[in-house]
Design a protein around this nucleic acid. Structure first.
Lengths: 242, 242
DNA sequence: CTTGACAAATTGGTTGAACCAATGCAGCAT
DNA sequence: ATGCTGCATTGGTTCAACCAATTTGTCAAG
């Protein structure tokens, strides 16, 4: 699962995202880097190519390799590694805060699309997964609930019949997977959880896109506010420790 | 700007995204592919690595290279190349339709963040760019208007002081840049354009995030409906030709 | 002393061959 | 029929050399 070039990539990735190498700084030559990592140029170059495609470094023929200012140049897919490696607590906090905003808006869109485009099979599957969640919620089975919630979101994305939604969701799932060790405390359920799910099922079954979107919007507004409150406390205690 | 491995990458990318190679199909070995592209394994592998990181192919040691079902596996950053290479008109149409939804929601979020977080300098710069747009609009200078609108959006993203927003915007700008030859007809301005800009400037200056977001939402709802109407006509005529 | 051209050094880009390592399969032994 | 073994195929890594873009240093002309 992890090749040599993966390791080199990860090492350099961490160096950059944790600001151990400043933006604008020049890296040693490929030959020199290959020596330092005890490997050859080809394998090293694989790692460098990846960093370049993430817009973390710039490689120019005859000139060398420079570290870019990833805060300005990076793309959406840099979020997962950034959350893993970023050092400043307040920057991580803001990233998560803004990520929640994006998540709720994307989910709102997916739900809206799913409600308008879902087939009978889609509706059936979503309803089943909602029922399963309600059972897990009553049983207080946290793990099963988390798994089923992911599965339901996946089903909703499928039901939206949108490549756009699927690809966006994949990117967000990457963030979730890479970051899941730290997301346990972020998985909060509001008291309105069961009624939200029931309304959602009904809205999707009736192809009522407007209602589906608006209840999702307001539910996540509430959830996200709770999560941010929890994170603020964590940030405060971390700041006090430092 | 285009190295040999870039060319190979583009060629394979097009083959996959235009469905010339079906999902699940197996590609020839690296040695064989290198021969066909008249190059060596190392250079060829650079191209393959890129395709793998886009989740378009899967490379497994000892087993070979298989084309993935990109409609299920791809990420957000696949949108630009997909719009360039995709063949089915109705699939392109739906992608653009959904992309507009995402754009308006992201912009709404950026405007909301910018309104709450903008510094005095940010507000000043945005106001200047809005004024410039109003002038260009009155002069009917379409090119200058498009450029200035991009610059304003960029300033708004900066004013949001959000890595999230910046990185999302970079991804969307990639789509715009790669797809801009085809976007001319998509650049429509509603009659409410000047009044929207004026309200936006006021809302941001007053840090009124709610108003800024809601007027942006409704403005883009109107714009996007127009764009979709135009595209539907194009789709219809294309379907009739075929 | 300044300026321009040219040559050398440095750096990334490409090449080809060889070897290591994971996988799948065919043939053989049971 | 089953399970093992060894071979063929395939990706992963390494090495050494050369090509090509860029920068830098040097020297000659002004």
């Amino acid at each position: 699962m992890h090749s040599l070039s993966d390791d080199i990539f990860s090492t350099l990735l961490e160096s950059i995202l944790s600001d151990q190498i400043a933006a604008g700084e020049r890296l040693p030559s490929e030959r020199e880097l290959a020596k330092r990592f005890s490997t050859n140029r080809n394998t090293l170059r694989e790692a460098l190519q990846r960093l370049e495609h993430l817009a973390l470094i710039g490689i120019r023929h005859g000139q060398g390799i420079t570290v870019q200012d990833y805060r300005k140049t990076a793309r959406f897919d840099c979020i997962a590694p950034f959350l893993v490696h970023a050092q400043r607590p307040e920057e991580r906090f803001r990233m998560i805060e803004d990520l929640l905003r994006v998540r709720s808006r994307i989910l709102e869109m997916c739900v809206e699309l799913a409600a308008s485009r879902a087939s009978e099979e889609d509706i059936q599957r979503i309803a089943e997964l909602i029922d399963a969640q309600l059972v897990h919620h009553q049983d207080n089975d946290r793990d099963a609930l988390m798994r089923t919630e992911i599965a339901m979101i996946d089903a909703i994305v499928d039901a939206s019949h949108s490549l756009m939604a699927r690809w966006l969701a994949n990117t967000l799932l990457d963030v979730y997977n890479d970051f899941s060790p730290h997301t346990a405390e972020m998985w909060v359920a509001d008291e309105s959880f069961p009624s939200y799910l029931a309304s959602l099922r009904k809205a999707i079954a009736e192809h009522d896109a407007g209602t589906a979107a608006s209840i999702t919007r307001s539910y996540y507004q509430s959830i996200d506010a709770t999560i941010i409150r929890v994170l603020e406390e964590l940030l405060h205690s971390a700041t006090l420790e430092a």
